[in-house]
């Protein structure tokens, strides 16, 4: 994105509540920058549920492997992963939990995923309207199952949200998106999608190769998790990683062939 040199513009266009002369909100665009530097997150909508996966960049060798989960639960039936500033994401998740609780305390039913996302969208948008606050530095992929089946959405720093069959955000989003487009969505099963998700995260990591990462996958489906958002079982994760490794080997060798 081309940003005008600061000296060229009056300082105040940098304020969150004020448009630039050409109609942009720079704070939101800077927040998007923060997202674009974060580890890749993806979400896949399947016929029987949702799969979420993140590339968790490991900043220190002292961190305990397999702990410090990045994917979070908003309600039993709703999971979320995000790229960008982790504390901002945590705050957004807390807000989501409050919204889910308040809906449930009134209507005695789990919140519908579209209703949750609508409330979160309003909340995020509010942080683009006042110069005393800054927008959220995250794009959050929210997936869940309710009475109307699986839903997958992504909320961006501007507060806008769209529904997706496959969503990707973060540093490797371009690679991830082109991989997602190759899949037959949303006709995959969650079991198949877990493997594809692993493959996509590994492929997306190519753009971030100098850093170590851990793969984290969660899912929601009817058969295995009974509509709950849970981490995938240990064995399935292992299986998925093996699949991802095998696939990338294959591609490397086919690349070599093409070079010949």
């Amino acid at each position: 994105m081309m940003l005008p040199p600061l000296s060229f513009l009056p300082i105040f266009i940098d304020f969150n509540c004020i448009f630039s002369p050409d109609g942009r909100n720079f704070q939101v665009e800077y927040a998007t920058k923060a997202v674009e530097n974060g580890g890749t997150s993806i979400g896949i909508k399947c016929k029987d549920g949702i799969v979420l996966a993140v590339e968790k960049v490991v900043n220190s060798k002292l961190l305990v492997p397999g702990k410090n989960k990045k994917i979070q639960t908003i309600d039993r039936h709703v999971g979320v992963c995000y790229s960008g500033l982790i504390p901002d994401g945590r705050h957004l998740v807390n807000r989501g939990r409050d919204e889910a609780q308040s809906y449930k305390s009134l209507y005695k039913e789990p919140i519908l995923v579209p209703s949750l996302i609508d409330r979160l969208g309003i909340y995020v948008q509010n942080y683009t309207c006042y110069n005393s606050v800054r927008p959220f530095g995250v794009s959050a992929i929210v997936g869940g199952i309710d009475d109307n089946g699986p839903h997958l959405y992504m909320i961006e720093p501007s507060g806008v949200y769209w529904g997706y069959n496959g969503a990707a955000t973060g540093k490797g989003r371009q690679a991830a998106k082109s991989e997602l487009e190759k899949l037959d969505l949303p006709n995959l099963t969650t079991r198949e999608a877990v493997k594809e998700a692993a493959k996509i995260i590994y492929a997306a990591h190519e753009s971030n190769k100098d850093k170590d990462f851990e793969l984290e996958i969660s899912w929601i489906n009817y058969e295995d998790t009974k509509g709950r958002h849970e981490s995938i079982p240990e064995e399935l994760l292992k299986e998925a990683i093996e699949y991802a490794a095998a696939q990338s080997d294959e591609e490397e060798s086919s690349d070599e062939e093409m070079e010949e």
């Binding site: 989960k69 994917i71 979070q72 639960t73 999971g79 609780q101 449930k104 305390s105 981490s231």
Partner: peptide
């Protein structure tokens, strides 16, 4: 019943 259900959901925030 509702209180314990809420407690269970909060317990589930720790996804592990």
């Amino acid at each position: 019943e509702r209180l314990l259900d809420d407690l269970e959901i909060e317990d589930g925030y720790d996804i592990e």
